[in-house]
């Protein structure tokens, strides 16, 4: 493999990883606060893809983009209100089953509304333009993804560290009940968490699908699971961790595909998950927790 091919693959991997990182943040934030694997998150990502298709069909791109972000956010917050909020005090297994149910519902709904056939993803002008950089050639979106990811993560971390809302989120994720005793509006905090996660998923979906060209009802489930693994890898609840995990999974997967083991590229993610859970169950940047009776 020549150096150019190697660099080319690296670029693809980083770009894929950037999209994964954005989705992984949604998982890690929700898990940090609700202790829930939001199985529906991957499907929200898929729905964002469909929203984009329909928004672009009738609107110019600079209006379509914010519309997609808003609709996706509404979907994410709506799901939380309808499917997770009534189960706040239920056992964890019920909430998880509810999450699986929502994911199932979204997939079936997408199949019903948009048929199971893959639909072509529209092109935002400029994103697909191919640039040459030395021997490398890649579309603009490939360069944009990692940069945009890092900017968004920086903004998010600033939000969490330096605003009152961010402080509330940190408090709720540390201790749910005490936080509510301190006068924090739990439901509002959780809604905002879901909103942020959904916005990032929508951005991730635009970047991811622009490269993939098609959307179908199940195109969210596998990336969703991979991003959850990325979140676990980085340490669940930690945003920098999710980003690092996303990039690593994206690059590892690209490397396997490049080496000719594409059938195992999905399995690879889960091998990583199991190894990390055995060696370092709290992930790279996770906090240690102790078992209490």
């Amino acid at each position: 493999m020549s150096l150019t091919t190697f660099l080319q693959q690296c670029l693809t991997g980083i770009s894929l990883g950037g999209a994964y990182a954005l989705i992984a943040i949604g998982y890690t934030m929700v898990y940090g606060i609700l202790r829930l694997i939001n199985f529906a998150h991957g499907d929200i990502f898929m729905m964002a893809g469909y929203f984009m298709i329909f928004a672009m069909a009738s609107l110019p791109w600079f209006i379509a983009l914010p519309v997609v972000l808003i609709v996706t956010t509404a979907l994410g917050v709506g799901i939380e209100r309808v499917a997770y909020k009534p189960l706040r005090s239920a056992p964890r297994m019920s909430v998880m089953i509810s999450a699986i149910g929502v994911s199932y519902l979204l997939q079936n709904l997408a199949t019903y509304l948009f048929t199971a056939l893959p639909m072509g993803y529209p092109e935002v002008p400029g994103l697909k333009k191919v640039y040459q950089l030395g021997g490398l050639s890649a579309s603009f979106v490939t360069f944009l993804t990692p940069v945009l990811t890092l900017i968004l993560v920086y903004l998010l971390i600033t939000l969490i560290q330096h605003t009152k809302m961010g402080m509330a989120m940190r408090a709720v994720s540390k201790d749910y009940e005490t936080a509510s005793l301190m006068g924090i509006d739990i439901n509002r905090t959780i809604s905002i968490t879901f909103a942020i996660g959904s916005i990032l998923a929508a951005v991730g979906s635009i970047l991811y699908f622009t490269d993939r060209m098609t959307v179908f009802p199940f195109s969210g489930s596998l990336p969703g699971m991979k991003c959850f693994v990325a979140a676990v890898f980085g340490g669940i609840g930690s945003i920098p961790g999710a980003v690092v995990g996303g990039f690593l999974i994206g690059m590892g997967e690209t490397a396997l595909v490049a080496a000719g083991y594409s059938t195992f590229s999905d399995a690879f993610t889960f091998v990583i998950l199991i190894v990390i859970l055995l060696v370092r169950p709290t992930g790279l940047f996770g906090e240690k927790t102790t078992n209490k009776v």
């Binding site: 829930l36 694997i37 964890r92 998880m96 699971m225 059938t263 195992f264 998950l273």
Partner: peptide, 29 residues
Amino acid sequence: FPVLRLKSDYLAIATLGFAEIIRACIAAP
């Protein structure tokens, strides 16, 4: 041996992952 040491959600994801690995192996050329 490795998986059952994990707690609730991690166990769910790990077993889900294993099912997916088994499927990938079956489909592998």
